[in-house]
């Protein structure tokens, strides 16, 4: 029973921490992709393409077994956290960028035409509209991230899926165990969806 709890707590912790990490890095990358400096834009674009186009499992294996080979050893949990955060950051960056782009360019131009500075028009016209539009995509990323944490079990982290598999070996009650774990993921996703809707209402 303690194994179930450990797995569940690890999954929740990994999800929450990785999402915070992904938001932070993703915000930075999105800014890089928007600023009017060609080199920074290129760096942002390369980051997104490289991280998005390589499977998370490959990143996890590379981080967990590769980093110690170059002299960087961290606990398994934090290695998984790092890989998942950096991976999902690419998706967060894209969501943020398309959120800003989705605000009709006329809006920004109108603000500038009224004499607002770049900073003012971002602060009062573009970002408020964009922030509403990114809530749903970000919630989708958070749900995808919850699912992605299951892969950490493959590289040794005792997450919920790994715990389920280990219990199943002993109890031989596969249907019960896996349905229970599936329900846990459903509840977590429902929680994220609920939070996103509440946030959307507040921003509206």
């Amino acid at each position: 029973m303690s194994l179930v709890l450990e797995g569940f707590l690890n999954t929740v912790a990994l999800t929450l921490l990785s999402f915070c990490g992904a938001l932070l890095v993703g915000l930075l990358v999105a800014v890089l992709r928007i600023v009017p400096v060609p080199l920074l834009r290129a760096i942002g674009a390369v980051y997104v393409e490289v991280w998005r186009n390589i499977p998370l499992l490959a990143w996890l294996v590379l981080f967990v077994f590769g980093l110690p080979e170059v002299g960087v050893t961290m606990p398994l949990f934090w290695t998984a956290f790092l890989a998942i955060s950096l991976y999902e950051a690419a998706f967060v960056a894209e969501a943020l960028r398309s959120g800003v782009n989705s605000v009709a360019s006329g809006q920004g131009e109108a603000a500038r035409a009224l004499g607002l500075s770049l900073r003012q028009s971002l602060r009062h016209v573009v970002l408020p509209q964009a922030s509403r539009r990114v809530v749903q995509p970000l919630a989708n990323i958070a749900i995808a991230l919850t699912m992605a944490t299951a892969l950490a079990g493959v590289v040794g982290v005792v997450d919920m899926t790994r715990a389920a598999q280990r219990i199943n070996l002993e109890l031989a009650q596969p249907l019960l165990v896996f349905t229970g774990v599936g329900l846990c993921y459903l509840v977590m996703a429902a929680g994220i969806g609920f939070g996103a809707r509440a946030l959307e209402r507040r921003l509206a």
Partner: peptide, 18 residues
């Protein structure tokens, strides 16, 4: 107990101090 999926991964993990 820390589990890895294959023997080479286990050996690597042991050598890396996991």
């Amino acid at each position: 107990v820390v589990e890895f999926g294959s023997d080479p991964e286990c050996v690597t993990a042991l050598k890396q101090g996991r």
